[in-house]
Simulated assay, not measured.
Amino acid sequence: MSETSHKNPTWQQAEIDFLLRNGIVSRPQQLQEFNHVKSRWVYRTLREVLLTPSGHVLKRFTHFPGRRDHRRVWLREHAALTRLEGFSAPKSLGFITVRHADAKCTSVLYAREMIPDRPIGRVDDTVLEKIAELLAQFHH
């Protein structure tokens, strides 16, 4: 069975409740408004990134039967953003694991705030000093 034959599982009620509880959506119909920006396969794990109109980043890791990606990147990202709380970093809202009986797979849905901005272009000395100070704070 090829990876392309797997369909994205439907949203489970536990995932919808998680999104409602964290203020990412105010009603389930808003799931259709998510901007699906990236998806890729790592072994039998489908990794997806979605942006929401409410200013959140969702990462969904769907594990299908067979060899799978065992790296739990959502745990590392959540731990890192939790440690950076109080700095100019997005807030992690946590994650939820659900079982999809219809697709015979499990998913982890991870959510964090999005800090909108534009890509870095030319960096002048004052911005470089601020970046250096921020990096020093991280390492402290």
Rank of each mutant, 00 (worst) to 15 (best):
T4G: 00
S5K: 14
S5G: 06
H6Y: 15
H6V: 06
N8V: 10
W11H: 02
Q12A: 04
Q13L: 12
Q13E: 15
E15G: 03
I16M: 03
I16L: 03
I16K: 02
D17M: 09
L20Q: 08
G23P: 10
G23Q: 14
S26N: 12
P28S: 08
Q29D: 14
Q30P: 03
Q30V: 03
L31P: 02
Q32K: 15
E33K: 11
F34E: 07
N35F: 08
V37H: 08
S39G: 00
W41N: 02
V42Y: 03
V42W: 03
Y43W: 09
T45E: 05
L46M: 13
S54F: 08
H56V: 04
V57L: 15
L58F: 12
L58I: 10
L58Y: 11
K59T: 00
R60G: 05
F61G: 00
T62V: 04
T62W: 03
F64L: 05
F64Y: 14
F64P: 00
P65Q: 12
G66Q: 10
G66T: 08
G66M: 14
H70C: 09
V73L: 14
R76W: 15
E77N: 03
A79F: 13
E85S: 09
E85W: 07
G86Y: 13
G86W: 12
F87V: 00
S88L: 14
K91A: 08
S92R: 03
L93S: 04
G94W: 14
I96S: 01
T97R: 15
T97V: 09
R99P: 00
D102N: 09
K104D: 15
K104N: 14
C105R: 05
S107A: 04
V108N: 03
M114E: 15
I115K: 11
I115T: 06
I115E: 06
P116T: 05
D117G: 10
R118I: 07
P119F: 07
I120C: 06
K130W: 09
K130G: 08
A132C: 13
A132I: 11
A132F: 15
L134M: 14
L134N: 10
L134A: 13
L135E: 09
Q137E: 12
Q137F: 08
H139E: 13
H140V: 04
